[in-house]
Computed example of a mutant assay.
Amino acid sequence: MALLKCYILLQEAWTGSSQHCSGTNMENSSYSHPSLLTLSFGQIMEVKYFYSALVLLCFVMIVVSNGAVISAIVIHRSLQEPMFIFVAFLCVNGLYGSLIFFPFLFVNLLSKTHVISYIGCIIQVFGIHTFISCEVTILAVMAFDRYVCICNPLRYKSIMSLATVFKLIGAAWLYVIFLITIHLILTIRLPLCGSVIQKIYCDNWSVVRLSCIDTTVNNVFGLLITAAIMCLMPVLTLVSYVQILWVCMQSSKVFRAKALQTCTPHLITLTYFVADVLFEILLPRFPSTVLPYELRILMSVQAFVIAPILHPLIYGWKLREIRLRVLQMFGAKQIANLQNNL
């Protein structure tokens, strides 16, 4: 009798679990990727024309300023050196991120319905995450360039040849594209139960949180990517600058001043950008009531606005060679000649 009861209990448990699994599969199979996703603009739509004009102004400023720096470096052979080439690719990345972000935002601000197609959302996720990640990897490569220049000046030209420069830039991009592509494949496989993105643009976490199934794999891989890019690259940059600082402390005041002049803009950019991105990564993990929604929006768009504007201003104006060439391009030859004589 005891064996019979055990058999009946096992059979009931098996039948129940089978029904539960089949029900779960049916439930999951009824969900797929929605064709349209809704973005959350909230109360900013009350002054949408003001924000539309502001977005357009920022976009034009970014295109003109970054385009000017890139053109100056491409046109003038005297600027085709490793440091300036890295600056040019940093500006190219800023243009790339702006093209992914601003047109979508501008169109949605002027639209009555704030929607984006699922494919468009995935494209924006890829673009935004590659832009942010490439920003950090290029800054890490630039730190290595400054390390070789300051700590090994006699071997600099032999180590940092143009071929090496383009290999480093290619490696920085491929490293990011490989990791982000895997991350995006893990996201695309997820069925979605909802269609409302809790932001004014698409990012990976906003899509993943709409999933109907367990997202542990996505969360773990997301942490690994954060560690591999947003933690590892700044650490490598910091190591380079510790070595530079050590050499500067043992050098003359003139050498120290020149080294700090070229390195300070880099440190400012990296510190601000990494702090902003880490804030954006951590903020969605907290309740939405921690900060007002408008402030959350403002904080979330800084990486796409401040960094692309900051690069031409810091590098294009701080580095004398680029500043002179840009002034000459815009016809300010008298100002350029005056600064050249100073």
Rank of each mutant, 00 (worst) to 15 (best):
L36T: 14
T24E: 12
C58D: 11
F59N: 05
L56V: 15
P34M: 08
V47Q: 12
N28K: 06
S18P: 00
F41L: 03
F50G: 12
Q19E: 15
I44R: 13
F41Q: 04
L57M: 13
S32I: 00
Y51I: 03
S29I: 04
L37Y: 05
Y51A: 04
H20A: 15
C21N: 12
A53Y: 07
L37S: 04
Q43T: 12
C58Y: 10
N25V: 11
S30P: 00
E27P: 00
I44C: 06
N25H: 11
L54P: 00
F41V: 03
V63Q: 08
N28R: 11
A53D: 03
S29W: 08
N25S: 10
N28Q: 09
Q19T: 13
V60R: 01
V47P: 00
G42D: 10
M45K: 08
V60G: 02
E27V: 06
C58S: 11
V47T: 09
I44Q: 13
C21G: 05
E27G: 01
L54Q: 07
L54S: 08
S32Q: 07
S32L: 03
M45E: 05
K48H: 15
S65I: 02
E46A: 05
E27C: 02
Y49T: 07
Q43V: 03
S29K: 08
V64N: 01
M45P: 01
Q43G: 12
H20P: 00
M26L: 09
L54D: 05
Y51H: 11
E46H: 09
I44K: 09
G42C: 05
G23D: 06
T24D: 07
I62C: 06
S18L: 14
G42H: 06
F41N: 00
S30G: 07
Q19N: 13
V64F: 09
Y51E: 02
P34Y: 06
S29L: 14
S30R: 14
F50W: 13
A53N: 01
M26H: 09
C21D: 10
S65G: 08
M61T: 03
S65K: 02
E46V: 02
S35C: 04
C58A: 13
L56D: 03
V63A: 09
S29Q: 12
E27F: 15
